[in-house]
Design a binder for these strands. Structure first.
Lengths: 199, 199
DNA sequence: TCTTGACAAACGAACGTTCGTTTGTGGTAT
DNA sequence: ATACCACAAACGAACGTTCGTTTGTCAAGA
């Protein structure tokens, strides 16, 4: 037989893919087995329950974002560079782990109370890094003093988390341009500055 | 007996509520009946199928947004005012019809192909109104000429559509301030304009 | 030989839905 | 006013199917 055996990680990866596409409750164990060329029951040689799969995928999503933000915060630049690094790191996670991210963002709420609580606190921790960098920028004087760090961090994360809903890798917009576009709208908005010294 | 009877609209409303909370596939007809003090089977005195309920809720969501944008576009202001009206109208729809909106945004993809296609085209139409207003603003010269209307409209809608994920009516942020905050970050960003006469 | 991964059958529970029946209510004829 | 009827709403049992999961078996690698 030439078929390679499936590992536990194959199953988790396929679960991430299917949960992202059809949702947790919209994916049956038989669906998932079929994706791997197995019967649904055969999955139980590798895992204990369907919910374990969701926990595993969602935890991975949380970890990816936190790790990326760790890396972004280690730079020695000011708030502007740090914010841009956070944005770039987030975009990288979304584009490099699209299925995990989609499951993390959309299906985590299907977890039972205790697991969901862990995810929520990880998400809060992640969001606080954006908030802190924005606060820092306000203190440094590079961001306007009337900027509300909390709500602004929510807005930036809203843009970042929506990427999975519309971005297509073959859509003619590479990730550098995407980061650039997000960074520009976040920092400068769209309004033309009042002209001050024309010529 | 004092209990009032349930109408079809009660059922659709409850369906919107439950689909928003637990997802379409996460809500059983017995769950839904229980929400109304009925057996699951009793729902079929009013409806033909579970999917019909989803279609009805999602269609309502699409209609709410399109109607709001119709109203916003009738003003005679410039692009800046129109964009702000679009934002304010969107926020009103989200906050006044939270369950319908959550189902519209998160569960429409569970519809079968033909129904989903209708929703996608309604969403495209709605998005194009944001895009057109932004293009108009660029032509008018009130928005910077390097603004990409397509991607910018996506970003603004990302912020607007994420509201359902975090906003709490009792959270100390009223809707006027919310609209104001979105409008400001969209038009002005967060960066402090370069000062020209330092010191 | 021992472990692993997959099979295939089977489990009980839950699913969406159907069906025949009961119940309550409002209008009409008495 | 009372009796009647038509109808809509809800019941409750049951349908066939699918769900997540358990179990016992067996072939193949280590």
């Amino acid at each position: 037989m030439v078929t390679t055996r499936n590992t536990r990680e194959d199953i988790v990866a396929a679960a991430g893919r299917m949960f992202a596409d059809k949702g947790y409750h919209g994916t049956s164990m038989r669906d998932l087995g079929g994706e791997l060329g197995l019967l649904g029951s055969s999955l139980y040689s590798h895992i204990d329950s369907k919910e374990d799969l969701l926990v595993e995928v969602v935890d991975e999503g949380a970890r990816l974002f936190l790790d990326a933000s760790d890396r972004a915060m280690t730079g020695d630049g000011g708030a502007e560079q740090k914010l841009r690094a956070l944005i770039a790191g987030h975009v990288d996670v979304v584009l490099d782990h699209l299925d995990v991210v989609r499951t993390y963002l959309n299906e985590a709420r299907m977890l039972d109370e205790s697991h969901r609580a862990r995810v929520v606190s990880a998400r809060d921790e992640y969001e606080s890094r954006f908030r802190d960098v924005i606060s820092q920028g306000v203190e440094e004087g590079v961001f306007r003093s009337d900027v509300d760090a909390k709500i602004t961090s929510i807005f930036i994360l809203s843009i970042l988390n929506a990427i999975e809903r519309w971005y297509r890798p073959d859509g003619g917009l590479d990730r550098t341009s995407l980061v650039e576009a997000i960074d520009r709208v976040a920092t400068s908005g769209i309004q033309k500055p009042a002209s001050r010294v024309p010529r």
